[in-house]
Design a protein around this nucleic acid. Sequence first.
DNA 1: ATGTTGATCTTCT
DNA 2: GAAGATCAACATC
Length: 214
Amino acid sequence: MGSGTREELLALDSVRLAPHLLGALVSSFIDGELVVVRLTEVEAYNGSSDPGSHAYRGRTPRNAALFGPPGTAYVYFTYGMHHCANVVCGSDGTASAVLMRAGEVLAGEEAVRARRGNSTAPAHVLLSGPARLAQGLGLGLRQNGTSYLRGTAGEPGPSLGLENLAAIPLAHCRGPRTGVSGEGGGEAYPYRYWLPGEPSVSPYRRAAPRRRGT
DNA sequence: ATGTTGATCTTCT
DNA sequence: GAAGATCAACATC
């Protein structure tokens, strides 16, 4: 039996790891700003066997970081303007990952507000959504492929952290993933996990097909 | 509170 | 050419 160390937990596949990430602390030290966030909502994506995963159709230049070792950050650019960030997990090469969807600011709220361009909104909406969370943490393609596991211990320069994973998951809920349409959506893949009663958890929205542009 | 739409661009078909 | 692991603004109730 594992004793629940961070490395042991990150070696689990995404669906098993996800609940252990609820309540965990993600930190970034980027552009001289330290931000610490407590995760309240995540979604699991299970690699090549999961129609909702970016790795479902194999490895591409964009998703290469998904195939890296556990603890790798997979950050991607989408909708022409947003970034979203994952924690890669499972056996090396399985492309299993957990998307960070929402969190609560514990430190660095000023930096988060500056990055989000929002000095007035209530704190709980600042990091409510995957693109908001990534933006608040300052995550972009520069962090894609870097590791959450290398603490900086004196090293200058950008770095990420991931601490305080739950050895025993906190009480949580789960349900269908947000924003995933087609086969990977709906009740067939109830891989969204969240902490009940957290104001930062975004309401569930079924993936809505967009109307064709002109 | 809930629903609709434009923005904007990379990736894959 | 179309869709996409989204968000913010706006319309309507």
